[in-house]
Every structure is written in structure tokens, then in C-alpha cells.
Amino acid sequence: MDEKRRDRDAGGRARNARPRDGLGRPLPYGSEGVARQPEGVVRTPEETVREAQRLLDAGLPFHAHEVFEDAWKSGPETERELWRGLAQLAVGLTHAARGNARGGARLLRRGAAALGGITPTRPYGIGVEGLICWAEGLADEVAEGAASGRGVDPVARAPRLRGPVR
């Protein structure tokens, strides 16, 4: 495939069909990549939390971000900030794992701020307050270690969406 042409879906919309690694980074065409999350899947909140946690535990925060993004786009307006904030936490962890300290810290803080206005504090059993503390702590840690350029281990640093955060 000519890499200068944009990939398009059947409807003519731009879609990047390049394979991706486990952290969502594009790989050269023809490389073996990690299967992407299908877009536009409508899940119940329970299914969303369960699938996102499975992906986080597997070290695939980029993929978890896509699950949250589907919930954010398909769910009720009243829950949009919850799912958007969780998506930002997942993509913040993605950037931190890639070694992008500045982007990771910024997105972790943005996600924590989005979750700060969520009531009740345990929607669908999600421990919002614990996630905010996790995100702020990881953002500080990542920002302090920015000069090293090393990413964090996404499995070891994955949050628990329900229950105590690691």
C-alpha cells in the first residue's frame, strides 16, 4: 500500500489501517500488530467496566481508552464526563508507558479533573475518588521522572476501576 495515501473505510471516512503495537503506536504496514478494538461498540456500563479492566490488566491502556470512548459517545449525556474522564486516564497511562512524560502527566491530570465533578462517587461501582488519587500520584511521578525518558510499566501501574487502586 502507498503509505502516503490515507486509509478509508467503506463510507470514505479516513481510518488508519496501519497495524499498532500494544500501546497504540503505529507500526509499518505489513507488520504483525495487536488487534484493535472495534469502533462504535455499544456496551452496558457493566460490560464497559469489565472489558476496560481486562485491557488495563493486560497492559493495553490504549485499547481500554477506546472502550471508554465508545461508552462516552454512545451513552447518555449525563454520563459523558465519567466515560470521557476514564478515557483520558487510560490514554494518560498510554503516554506515560510510551515515555511521553509531559503528555502522560497532562492527560492524567485532565482525566482526574473531569472525574472530580462526578456524583455519586461510585457510579457502576467505579471508585472515582481512588482513581483521582491514582491519576494525580502517577502524574506527579511521571512528571518528576520526565528527564529519564523511560516509560512506566502499564501492567504494574494499571488502576483498579473498582476496589482499591494499585
Rank of each mutant, 00 (worst) to 15 (best):
L23M: 06
V67I: 01
P38V: 07
G40I: 15
G125V: 01
F62R: 11
G151D: 12
P164Y: 08
R80I: 08
R50N: 09
R109K: 15
T121S: 10
E69F: 09
G145F: 01
E3H: 05
V34I: 15
E129R: 10
R5Q: 12
A58W: 04
A135D: 10
H65E: 15
Y29I: 00
L23S: 08
E136L: 14
R36D: 15
E136T: 05
H95M: 03
R98I: 15
T94Y: 09
E144L: 01
T78P: 00
R84L: 07
G137P: 02
G22V: 09
R6E: 08
Y124V: 00
G104S: 11
L115A: 09
Y124S: 04
L161S: 08
R166N: 07
R15Q: 14
W72I: 07
R110S: 09
H65Q: 13
R50C: 05
R84Y: 05
I126A: 01
R18P: 00
R25P: 01
N16W: 02
R8H: 00
L86E: 03
Q88R: 03
E51F: 01
R50E: 12
R54K: 10
H95Q: 14
R13D: 07
G103K: 10
P164T: 04
A64N: 11
E39D: 05
C133M: 10
G11F: 13
G30M: 15
E47C: 03
N16Q: 11
Q88V: 00
R110Q: 15
G151N: 11
R54F: 08
T119F: 05
W134T: 00
G149H: 03
P45T: 03
E46N: 06
L23H: 03
P45S: 13
Y29M: 04
P154H: 10
R36E: 15
A90W: 09
N16V: 12
N100I: 04
A139E: 01
V165K: 14
R150F: 08
E46A: 12
D9L: 02
K4E: 14
E69C: 04
R84T: 00
E32W: 15
A52T: 11
M1C: 05
R106D: 04
T44L: 02
D9W: 06
V41L: 13
G111N: 13
G92F: 07
E32Q: 12
E47A: 12
G127C: 01
W72E: 07
R80C: 03
R110L: 13
S74Y: 02
G111A: 11
G24C: 08
A105I: 08
L82G: 11
G33H: 11
A139M: 08
L23P: 02
R6P: 01
T48N: 04
Q53N: 02
A87K: 02
G116D: 10
R25S: 09
L27S: 12
W72R: 07
R43F: 04
R6W: 14
T78S: 01
Y124F: 14
D2Y: 02
